[in-house]
């Protein structure tokens, strides 16, 4: 695991009015790694993800993708640099077919295809996430797990260098969860670099190479999953201080 970091976050900070949502957070993600970003509700994980994807601009600090600075760039440029994401509340394009939803990712992003090429990419990805033959389905009427799959396929369609999953497993029932974990695992085995914000601890334990823990906007721990989750400061961040 000596690969150069594909993502380098240095002193990232985001302030909303008087609230410091992300407080000087730094960490690296290496090529092919699956990093879990965890922490209690309101700890700034999603904000951190939004800083990477360009949905928000950091107040201070720098974020670099493969050596090029992406912090402060607009979201569409970051997407073209090779960052793709899913959203905490699933966002599909309701008036478009499933195939078109996935093509959206293949046409404008890191990999820019068009016409039949884009359709082939999209069809292959639909099959990959378990929606084979559903290309013509209208997406508004799909089930929740299928919408989540679709969103994942769209993110993968640009062949991103870095994939951001924002609570992609949240809200799935146990059997769906197993499918979801398997799917992420397959992507990892393909060598995809992933950051996942997640509350489902089973998924973190079974999938992540490493994890970063945030609490109240600050990074409080980083390292091997089992090791980090056992640390007292992480436990107290989740359960509250019991020695007060």
């Amino acid at each position: 695991m000596n690969a150069a970091p594909i993502l380098r976050i240095e002193g990232a900070r985001k302030v909303f009015g008087g609230l410091v949502a992300v407080n000087d957070v730094s960490f690296d993600v290496r090529e092919g790694e699956l990093v879990g970003l965890i922490g209690p509700n309101g700890s700034g994980k999603t904000t951190m993800l939004n800083l990477v994807s360009g949905a928000l601009k950091p107040t201070a600090g720098t974020i670099g993708l493969a050596g090029a600075r992406i912090s402060g760039r607009p979201a569409h440029e970051i997407a073209r640099q090779g960052v793709a994401r899913t959203f905490q509340l699933v966002r599909i394009l309701p008036s478009m077919t499933a195939l078109e939803n996935v093509m959206a990712g293949a046409v404008f992003g890191h990999m820019r295809t068009w016409g039949d090429d884009a359709r082939h990419v999209a069809a292959a990805l639909l099959e990959r996430v378990g929606l084979a033959g559903r290309g013509d389905a209208m997406t508004g009427s799909m089930t929740y797990i299928d919408q989540k799959r679709l969103e994942l396929a769209r993110a993968l369609a640009s062949n991103p260098r870095l994939l951001l999953l924002d609570e992609w497993l949240a809200g799935l029932n146990p059997s769906e969860l197993k499918l979801g974990i398997d799917l992420i695992n397959e992507m990892r085995n393909d060598g995809r670099t992933i950051i996942m914000v997640e509350h489902v601890m089973d998924a973190i334990r079974s999938l992540c190479d490493r994890c970063v823990v945030m609490s109240s906007g600050v990074k409080i721990a980083e390292g091997d999953v089992a090791d980090v989750l056992a640390r007292p400061e992480v436990v107290s961040a989740y359960l509250g201080d019991d020695d007060a």
């Binding site: 994807s53 360009g54 949905a55 607009p74 979201a75 569409h76 997407a79 073209r80 793709a84 994401r85 959203f87 966002r91 599909i92 394009l93 309701p94 008036s95 478009m96 959206a104 990712g105 046409v107 404008f108 992003g109 890191h110 820019r112 769209r154 640009s158």
Partner: peptide, 10 residues
């Protein structure tokens, strides 16, 4: 459909 998605697909 969704401008946020549009931005994030590039």
């Amino acid at each position: 459909n969704d401008e946020t998605v549009a931005r994030h697909v590039g």
